[in-house]
């Protein structure tokens, strides 16, 4: 047991390579809205930026965020090529409501279910909403928790920079 921890600690302490951003994991199992099991490696956008947003049907600020972005999503896509991928952390209490919720709100996002919250844990999400910007190489370049109106303008400013290959 002690050896195990020492090993992990040693692995972390030894051999620090050049700093680089963490990538989103590719091997976590999630589900599409029609019940198909897929891996997180499906989250791709042909080298263009991705907004990855963790949300739940019962979370008011999450709904405000996704509804606010909906109004400007088409413009954002045309301008930067960005794609929004929404990960629902609804558990079995409300997972059956996710598809009706997404359609009822007319969201055009790519939506996946993370019922067992494996992806949420792998991304160190504590509270929802929690939003990430992923660059063309699949690296996490920015993250933010909570949402208030106006936050979408800060978000697109950053996405523009990422789309232009600038550091943020």
């Amino acid at each position: 047991m002690k050896k195990f921890f020492l090993m992990i600690a040693a692995t972390m302490l030894v051999g620090v390579a050049a700093a680089q951003n963490a990538k989103i994991p590719e091997n976590i199992t999630i589900k599409t809205l029609d019940g198909k099991t897929v891996e997180t490696s499906v989250i791709k956008n042909d080298g263009k930026p991705i907004i990855l947003s963790f949300w739940a049907t019962w979370c008011k600020p999450c709904n405000r965020e996704l509804n606010t972005i909906k109004e400007v999503y088409e413009e954002w896509q045309e301008e930067t090529g960005v794609k929004l991928v929404a990960i629902s952390i609804d558990d079995s209490k409300s997972a059956a409501r996710v598809k009706p919720h997404v359609d009822g709100n007319e969201w055009e996002y790519e939506v996946y279910l993370d019922q067992n919250q494996d992806f949420k844990r792998a991304m160190n999400v504590v509270n929802v909403p929690h939003t990430f910007i992923i660059n063309g190489e699949g690296e996490i370049v920015w993250q933010h928790t909570s949402f208030v109106e106006g936050g979408e303008e800060e978000l697109i400013e950053l996405v523009r920079k990422v789309a232009n290959g600038e550091e943020i």
Binding site: M12, V14, G15, V16, A17, A18, Q20, K23, N124, I140
Partner: peptide
Amino acid sequence: SVILFSFSAKAQGILGGHVTGN
């Protein structure tokens, strides 16, 4: 020590891997 180290390392590449946390 792992926590403290991880703070300073901030998602560093370590032996080709990454340390993240909350």
